[in-house]
Design a protein around this nucleic acid. Structure first.
Length: 593
DNA sequence: ATCTGTGGCGCG
DNA sequence: AAAGCGCGCCACAGAT
């Protein structure tokens, strides 16, 4: 239908069209919808094609069969389907064709590919941004007028669309195709083909996860907030007494000090003789002053009320009754995903919060997390013999490290305080922590922390050698890489004024944190695929960096659990090849470890 | 009345 | 009172 702007209204017509482009190495796909909410808005158009021929499909007329036709066309030819910001279209398609197995669609995503290509070197871009219009301009010299989109929101059906809207819809497919065609050699040159494939494959898992949402017990959650309200009021009374000498009171007996204002708090504490230039918790606690201690308690209640208060519950969707967070698959420069509106990756770890996420009747919640992922990755990368042996034979790494550094037997019961120090070093060193930081972390003098670090690296020279080598090499090359080949360039850090120390710490940490992200994304893609293939009642509902949360039907929970564990381990083993990857699983009625 | 940057803090 | 990394959300403060 090149040139023309006819609408295809049946799945058969789409099949015929796809036969005319069967020589194309890949297909581009896009949708136009009446809005952004897959649980409320509708699919209007589905556009598919190449750089030279695009079909516009009246989605409502053609019906969900059109998705099956597309799946068949890609599978027969072994072709990928390219989308820009696939997660959005896939969510819309999931509502449109609930019976279709979208995990079978071999997706590549031009937006995620671009983010992988520019990770850490965005600053040099003139037309910055990852929107399709920006990419079309950069790669194909095509101008796209995104304001046309408003026409779709107002349209009751495709017949209400004008020539302008249809032409725009076709150009989006043309642009997506051309952008990807231009990205393919760039991805190959940078060694990012594998990463782009993982991101594309995981985009359905992210889409399905957002679409499913998290089940939350609003009543139970509300009672936590109610309790925090009461405790905050009590804490305020205590604070008013502590500060009574230096503040005023209103007619109702309330102190006029705003305990949420750092400035006012610092001033008031100063008048009590406590001189501070920060109100961070450690600082307040270190003073030992009862007013400062009381502030710490007040802040805990205030944190619950503000960040995890009733506004959190406003994210419950009116139609599904669940919380549909928004995930950015590449949300961090390390390659980690991030979550927002609401952030489901920083729910307080205590069971009183987590147990509010309850499985509906007949379902269970599976929580599966990589055990000690970052230290295993460090062991893999450094080939440290003690780390490797400990993970291979199974043993308490923190205790073994402590025994070596302190030259005395340590276990969870024997000298546990030394084990705790070793644990702090183990985690801190991978991020480039210095003696000062370690001293603060474990509460010793800086000189003592220096000796500890020295003892640590004497005992594990391979760790120091690896970290120094990888940082040095990264700074020389201008980028660092994960085990799967994900790259992070330092250009943006440099232009933002980060000193060499900061860049060294990123160079040490990003490969570790980012490899963990590579692993779990590959696992997510494979899990979504396997669960669909086995027709099991199981779906991803959350991911928290090294943990996956799955909702499963009671009858399938054992098979789902086995698949989740198997795929997480095998995905980890794709990159961590010489160290066993372990996954801890917990099954229950609520989200818990 | 909004916008932006900062400090603080929840998570891994 | 941050020279341990990565996020997002909140309230405040100073700006427009």
């Amino acid at each position: 239908m090149a040139g023309g702007l006819d609408l295809l209204r049946t799945a058969d017509a789409v099949r015929s069209f796809l036969e005319t482009v069967s020589d194309a190495p890949f297909l581009a796909l896009d949708t136009e919808t009446t809005g952004l909410d897959p649980h409320a808005d509708r699919l209007l158009l589905l556009q598919i094609g190449t750089a030279t021929a695009q079909a516009l499909v009246d989605a409502q007329a053609a019906g969900p069969d059109v998705v099956r036709v597309i799946l068949e066309a890609t599978e027969a030819k072994g072709r990928v389907v390219v989308l820009h910001h696939a997660k959005f279209d896939l969510k819309m398609l999931a509502s449109f064709a609930p019976e279709a197995d979208l995990s079978r669609l071999p997706v590549m995503d031009t937006m995620l590919s671009e983010q992988a290509l520019l990770n850490g070197r965005k600053a040099h871009l003139l037309g910055a941004g990852f929107g399709l219009a920006a990419l079309a301009e950069r790669y194909a010299g095509m101008g796209l007028d995104k304001t046309v989109r408003e026409g779709f929101v107002a349209a009751p059906n495709v017949d209400a669309l004008g020539e302008v809207e249809l032409r725009y819809a076709a150009r989006d497919v043309e642009a997506t195709y051309k952008v990807f065609a231009a990205q393919v050699p760039l991805l190959a040159d940078e060694g990012l083909t594998r990463i782009a494939a993982i991101e594309g494959a995981a985009s359905w898992a992210f889409a399905a996860m957002e679409h499913a949402g998290m089940p939350v017990d609003a009543v139970a959650w509300g009672s936590i907030v109610d309790q925090a309200d009461r405790e905050k009021a009590l804490a305020r009374k205590v604070l008013d007494v502590e500060f009574k000498e230096v503040i005023g009171f209103d007619l109702f007996g309330y102190g006029n000090l705003n305990y949420d204002s750092d400035q006012e708090v610092i001033d008031a504490l100063g008048r009590l003789g406590v001189k501070l230039d920060s109100t961070r918790r450690e600082v307040l606690e270190s003073t030992g002053h009862p007013a400062a201690i009381a502030l710490v308690g007040y802040r805990e209640h205030q944190k619950i009320i503000s960040t995890y208060g009733r506004r959190f519950l406003e994210h419950i969707h009116p139609r599904t009754g669940r919380i549909h967070s928004s995930f950015k698959p590449i949300g961090a420069i390390t390659g980690r995903a991030s979550s927002s509106e609401p952030n489901l990756q920083n729910i307080p770890a205590s069971s009183r919060f987590r147990s509010c996420f309850k499985a509906p009747p007949g379902k269970k919640i599976i929580a599966a997390d990589y055990s000690g992922a970052e230290l295993r990755i460090l062991a893999e990368m450094s080939s440290d013999p003690v780390f490797m042996r400990t993970f291979i034979e199974g043993g308490d790494l923190h205790a073994i490290v402590a025994s070596r550094i302190f030259d005395t037997p340590v276990s969870k019961t024997e000298r546990p305080e030394l084990r705790a120090r070793a644990k702090a070093i183990n985690f801190g060193l991978a991020y480039g922590m210095g003696a000062g930081g370690l001293a603060a972390q474990i509460g010793v003098a800086t000189a003592e922390a220096e000796q500890l670090l020295e003892a640590y690296f004497r005992a594990f020279p391979a760790i120091r050698g690896y970290l120094d080598r990888t940082a040095h090499e990264a700074l020389r090359k201008g980028f660092c890489t994960t085990l799967a080949g994900r790259k992070h360039w330092f250009a943006d850090l440099v232009s933002s004024g980060a000193d060499e120390g900061a860049r060294v710490r990123v160079a040490k940490n990003m490969p570790i944190q980012g490899t963990n992200a590579d692993m779990i994304k590959l696992a997510m893609a494979r899990i979504a695929r396997a669960l669909a293939e086995e027709k099991l009642d199981g779906r991803l509902i959350n991911m928290i960096h090294d943990e996956l949360v799955i909702e499963a039907g009671e009858g399938d929970v054992e098979r789902v659990t086995a698949i989740v564990k198997r795929e997480m381990i095998s995905a980890g083993a794709a990159f961590v090849r010489r160290i066993p990857v372990e996954v801890d699983v917990h099954v229950g009625d609520v989200w818990q470890h």
